[in-house]
Design a protein around this nucleic acid. Structure first.
Lengths: 116, 116
DNA sequence: CTGGATCCTTTAAGATACTG
DNA sequence: CAGTATCTTAAAGGATCCAG
């Protein structure tokens, strides 16, 4: 039974997982496999360490990412997605596909206007 | 060919469509059919007219919603989704389903912890 | 390398009263 | 009814320097 509260919770949760400037980007990279902090910092172009750590902590608290430390010198940390989070991947892929397609559609329509 | 820029554009676009506190909620309601301003204000519980009009304008600028006015007295305005936006609906539904399910999974895990 | 701490700027959002 | 205008607060994000 999907009550209205379920929906509201889901909405809120969705925003926590996908909201903000960086989360989708970070998730998209982690779907390729585990990454160290520095690797993420490089691949999420433009993010500051402060924001990266904040987003990762948020996602960890939501059980979306795992954080694993290794006692090397210097210390290394690996971030990966939880198995539960993995199940989001196809949806996110489809969502991005839709966006790409939507943008293309709109551009095509603008071109048509020119020929009118 | 999906270049990196395509992906970045899609990410940005996705955030414009789904980001913020209210957009997903508004879209979810509009999937049920066209609504007048006041109807939306009632159904998007807690939103102020200022936020509602802002979000609607944003979505209109992105070609996600249509705005149609009628010269009745008093004036009535109907908002509806563009046909292109309609194609997002199944994805959004799945996304919310995923969220509901994820939340439930996490709750179940916490209950299991109690029995350990 | 992996962050923490601090300060600062920019957006997002809320409340409320008002107009054609 | 369908918005505007104004004011205020809260949250997000950026820059930079520092520590284990």
């Amino acid at each position: 039974m999907d009550t209205c509260e379920n929906l509201m919770d889901a909405l809120k949760f969705t925003q926590q997982v996908l909201g903000g400037k960086w989360k989708i980007h970070i998730l998209n990279i982690l779907y390729c496999g585990k990454k160290r902090f520095k690797e993420l910092e490089r691949e999420v172009v433009g993010i500051s360490p402060k924001m990266l750590i904040k987003e990762l902590k948020d996602l960890e608290a939501l059980n979306i990412v795992n954080r694993q430390t290794f006692n090397t010198v210097p210390i290394t940390v690996e971030y990966s997605l939880t198995t539960d989070a993995m199940s989001l991947e196809p949806l996110l892929t489809e969502l991005l596909k839709w966006s790409v397609n939507f943008i293309k559609l709109q551009e095509d329509k603008e071109k048509e206007e020119v020929f009118k």
